[in-house]
Amino acid sequence: MTTQTVNPPPESAASATAACHPRPLLAAATLCHRELVRFFRQRSRVVGALGQPILFWLLFGAGLGSSFRLPGSEGGGVSYREYFFPGTLVMILLFTAIFSTISIIEDRREGFLQSVLVAPIPRWSMVLGKVLGGSLIAMIQGLLFLTLVLVFTDDVHLDVWQLAAVVAFMFTIAVALTGLGFTIAWKMESTQGFHAIMSVFLLPMWLVSGAFFPVPSQPSGAVEWGLHWAMRANPLTYGVAGLRRLMYTETSAAPLPPQTPEMPICLIVTLAFAAIMFASSAAIARARTKGDLL
């Protein structure tokens, strides 16, 4: 009866005829591709994410153009449309990134996610696919806006190198914002909940990023001090500032607000923002809870 203690060798039998060999990067690529296909099949998303920022840019540009004066610059120097341009770019990235991560809630509700969750892939590859997909969609929208502005207006001028740098920087911001969206959306049960977060957290985050108005340089009073530090603590401030600096790499007399952070700092903060947001998405998705279900 010695055989009783000997376990049958099922593992060897199992691995010898393994049904498939999972490839995390292929899985990420396919999920990313799916995001893009879905995006283009839902036209209203294309219009919504691009239309609103363009309207904002034109309307605010027209409405505030006459009253806006950049602090520290003596008269004129920069139009509001020009000032508002990097902020609008970031707004497009924010809206598109956020809306594309909302789709994780839909994926969960519609059932698609369950088949991804039981697939033999690490969770980070699912997150990579989702974040990359969302970032690329955001980039497409952002580049569309950039092209429209460069071709049809006289507000912004970029040479090829500046353009390349702007695109790379935009992509980093897009990854950060998509990661942020994913982190928020993963545990959400409904898209309504996400809209609430959008209006009390994400939109204010954009408002105090220097996109809309510059950081108060010589704050007086509690409110201005609070704003000053909120803006300096906001990682998105460095994204907007980085894009603004990249617009003026050719000139020494760049029309920049006084509190604009230096380029290396913008780059470091934005890269760290993206890395941290991706890591937090991967970490939150890795924890298997009942939250994985409906």
């Binding site: 498939c20 396919t30 879905r38 088949s115 991804v116």
Partner: peptide, 21 residues
Amino acid sequence: PSLDKKLTVAENIRHQGHLYG
């Protein structure tokens, strides 16, 4: 259902294949 409704039958199958390497 675990199908992506916006995708075709073939696309659904293909994505599934990629998920399984």
